[in-house]
Amino acid sequence: MDLTLKIWRQENAKAKGKFETYKVKDISPDSSFLEMLDVLNQQLIEDNVAVPVCFDHDCREGICGMCGLYINGRPHGPDTAVTTCQLHMRKFNDGDTIVIEPWRAKPFPIIKDLVVDRSAFDKIIEAGGYVSVNTGGIPDANAIPIPKKDADISMDAAACIGCGACVASCKNASAMLFVAAKVSQFAHLPQGKVEAKDRVKNMIAKMDELGFGNCTNTGACEAECPKEISLTHIAKLNREFFAAKIL
């Protein structure tokens, strides 16, 4: 496949960025999107035309949440329920022009090119996205009975890898789906219920403080989430919040 790439290039956080156009040839339809970018970078180095394009990645198997590119108007590209590293080039056509942009949100400042700083998510987790455990001996796995239904919902929420595609796709740059997943995963488990009230209040307060937008139930996040986190978790987050605040 021969492709034209329009890529956002930005020297550093302060620099004014712009789009650069590059051409790549003979890309295998079976390669991943990131492998395609590897080919581009190799070419840029060999031809000595520009410094390689910076992009985040780590596991390249859809579990770490590091990769994340806004491709032709969609976070993680045209496929559904996959991360950028799992996106195959066969989802594109020979001769296509692909526009690649970084996540755009005030709390996610650009570090370089396509790499953004997502430590805002870490700050939200620090505000309450954990269970304070007293580490003692290993307890019996069946000591605390958890209904299968709750375990399943909690597990679905825990699938969130913190990639930030929800923020990137949301017209309000809202982090509600991420925060909802992190709140919901604990809210359904007995261990998480102990600190539920403080958790939900503190995490929402931190999310607001960091400058994420407000949810308008538009649903772009759910449509783009590589882990298919559902909007029902946002409803759960809202219930948890009202229970903590009003009851």
Binding site: K6, W8, F19, Y70, N72, G73, R74, P75, V99, E101, R104, A105, K106, P107, S169, K171, N172, A173, S174, G211, F212, G213, N214, T216, N217, T218, G219, A220, A223, E224
Partner: peptide, 25 residues
Amino acid sequence: QNMIARPVNYKVANNSQTSFFSKYM
């Protein structure tokens, strides 16, 4: 606040599957 949360817009407008009218509230 929502407008401030994304100071620099995308070149290609988002085309995710969403409720149409929610964008024009």
